[in-house]
Amino acid sequence: MRSNSAPGSSASLGVKLGALGAFLFLNVPILIIFLYTLTPDETTYTFPLPGITFKWFGVAVQRADLWRALILSIQVASVATAVALILGTLAAAAVYRSSFFGREAVSFLLVLPIALPGIVTGIALRSALGTFDFPFSFWTIVIGHATFCVVVVYNNILARFRRMQGSQIEASMDLGANSFQTFRFVVLPNIATALFAGGMLAFALSFDEVIVTTFTAGQQSTLPIWIFSQLVRPRDRPVTNVVATIVILITFFPIFFAQKLTAGTSDTQGETK
């Protein structure tokens, strides 16, 4: 808020230039990918582009392997989000409404998967699967993703609970509603946008996750895994540009709406990957 600074003060030129520089550094690179979807050049990343073509979108649509990867990614993200919504809401409700021994530890445990580097979660899950001879499947990917999606929902819902008025719940109970009615008609409408925001973030997080997935996917290929294989050994450069653009668009909108929903509140402060 402007009132934070001394009245009439404005940033010095140095601060403005520094801020602008950081802003451009943060946002311009991603635009380069959009530009490169139009290159006719199949083997290099020549700039300026030697021409303009729209054919790669058509080529990408024809690729069966891409469709399989896209569908797998969407399925994994949907199921992981559903699991995260249930577990995250339960944990947030428990932590909010009662104080019990080890309450702090619950928050810590939930945050751990995003506080430690992804590779730790990945290799831990991988070695656990190995120990119990558990075969790789759709579910192993989902289990991996859910571990770090739960905290996103948990943070959003808990922040919302803390801003909700407890008197509303008491009033509902006083007026004769049972717990389920109170949940349905008082609690749920109150946390609806937080659920939506948390779910959107969890979906986006899962949809383009690659580090944990490389350890829990086996031979299956999600869209990020497909892109990763192209990063290490580029074979279909123009198609990769198109796929990257699709991933950006699919993750941009959920996060954008989640951010708009919670903007101005501290719901999503302090989040980490």
Binding site: F23, I248, K260, E271
Partner: peptide, 29 residues
């Protein structure tokens, strides 16, 4: 500005690495 900072925080980690592959290439931008 906050949205423009948090969107890259949440999304497209891999795609953003990929963007630099294009930018840093010998013949690139």
């Amino acid at each position: 500005l906050i949205i423009s900072v948090t969107i890259p925080l949440w999304s497209s980690y891999l795609v953003r690495v990929y963007a630099w592959k294009l930018i840093l290439a010998k013949e690139g931008i």
